[in-house]
Design a binder for these strands. Structure first.
Length: 382
RNA sequence: GGGCGUGUGGCUGAGCAGCAAAGGCAUCAGACUGUAAAUCUGACGAGGUCUCCUCUUCGCAGGUGCAAGUCCUGCCGCGCCCA
């Protein structure tokens, strides 16, 4: 992997870049659509390509469970397995430490609407989630599919990711819950840092894969600074920035500001799991090159289309009679060929094609949005 | 004309004599940011001093019960069969 910075903004930390992998290039800043189970849900790989997606991220945890990395390896690696010839990343399974752990217990996402404060529940040092066990060497999971016990640690994750064969892989970390208190996060950070070292050691010498180390530290300044310096010192090819990123845009910005100056600016930075349209400009201005987010694909399957008019809930019966494109200005193949009334009808009829049409549009819309932001950087406007 | 069956909230459809009445659909509202996610949560007869209370409901009209959507009688509607 090779990363070139084509232009640095004079107005912000934004950069225009060029990420080169053996499966092609990625123009950054770039949205990375999520293909957890080696598929962008509802789309085949050619369609995903047609949405202007440049790179996808699949998931180690899920692919390890099903179908298992051996099958993928035998198929010639993820690219061949899923017929995606362009760049690919795999996430390490670190997010599942959260989503299947405290996230599940407390029914919270990694971004809280507000922090409950002293009265609210906090996760304290030493506390364990109900369904998984976080240890020094890794995490004992229970398969959400069949309850099977499954151990995943830094070494295991890297070995699996090498077999999967994405161009970029991530270190195994603990994505801490936003409810975790300072002491918990401190301990967790030690563990994650230790795991980062193990990940690098576990890597086979022959691999061409780039490995990104993940900065954690939750909403705590000292920990974010410590983590970014430490992860930088280990010499990864790039960085992931993960975990709790605060309850609002301002905090997210602050957290990024604590982090970025400590990272080698020649290396790509990937903000993990963040990407509301309204946040994109801010995160890119903060110096983020890549970011993945389930929102465009996930919301699509809830019947929600993103447009220049805002979010449209196509399930709403008022769209049943609207014989117009999802977005007037959009030139994606869905907007050129289908109308709201039809998509709304498909949704109400429970037809899965509705989900595909909206997924396609949303990805196109998001990718176009980022494309425009790249142009803005190019033109010195951000 | 006779026999059997049936009539429940916007629709569908459970319902034992002690229910404002299961479930589903529809509707409305909410959630979702490295995907346990084509999902989940809540409301859904009316009103209120709204963790509780009041009123009005199960084709219509009567009746028997402390108590009836649930039993009885009559009427009306619908369905099937026989004539």
């Amino acid at each position: 992997m090779d990363f070139k910075i084509l232009k640095k903004s004079k107005l912000s930390r934004a950069r225009l870049g060029f990420l080169e992998t053996s499966h092609g290039v990625v123009e950054t800043p770039c949205l990375v659509p999520v293909a957890t189970q080696a598929v962008v849900k509802t789309l085949d790989s050619e369609e995903a390509h047609e949405t202007k997606s440049q790179i996808l991220i699949a998931n180690t945890f899920h692919l390890h469970l099903k179908p298992g990395e051996k099958i993928v390896e035998k198929a010639g690696g993820l690219h061949k397995f899923m017929n995606w010839r362009k760049p690919l990343m795999t996430d390490s399974g670190g997010y599942q430490v959260f989503s299947l752990g405290f996230g599940r217990d407390y029914e919270v996402g990694k971004v809280l609407k507000f922090f409950p404060g002293k009265k609210g529940e906090a996760i304290k040092e030493g506390q364990q989630p109900q369904h998984i066990k976080i240890g020094l060497d890794g995490v004992i999971f229970r398969s959400p599919i069949n309850g099977d016990e499954l151990f995943l640690g830094p070494k295991e994750s890297i070995k699996i990711q090498e077999k999967l064969g994405a161009d970029i892989i991530f270190a195994f970390d603990e994505c801490t819950a936003p409810l975790a208190d300072l002491k918990y996060v401190k301990k967790s950070l030690e563990r994650t840092h230790n795991w980062a070292k193990i990940c690098l050691k576990a890597r086979s010498k022959r691999t061409k894969q780039a490995m990104f180390g993940i900065v954690q530290g939750s909403r705590f300044k000292a920990l974010r600074e410590e983590s970014s310096k430490f992860i930088d010192s280990l010499g990864f090819e790039g960085y992931g920035i993960g975990g709790d990123l605060g309850t609002n845009k301002q905090t997210t910005k602050k957290i990024l500001d604590w982090t970025m100056p400590n990272l080698n600016e020649k290396k790509p930075r990937h903000l993990l799991g963040i990407g509301y349209l309204e946040d994109m400009e801010m995160i890119i201005k903060s110096g983020v090159d890549l970011f993945d987010c389930t929102v465009p694909t996930h919301y699509a399957r809830r019947g929600i289309a993103f447009t220049s008019q805002g979010k449209l809930d196509l399930k709403d019966k008022k769209f049943f009679k609207k014989n117009e494109a999802l977005d007037k200005g959009c030139v994606c193949k869905i907007c050129l060929n289908y109308k709201k009334d039809y998509i709304s009808h498909l949704l109400r009829a429970g037809e899965i094609t509705a989900l595909k049409l909206i997924t396609f549009h949303n990805l196109w819309y998001f990718n176009t949005f980022v494309e425009e932001l790249r142009t803005k950087i190019k033109n010195g406007k951000m």
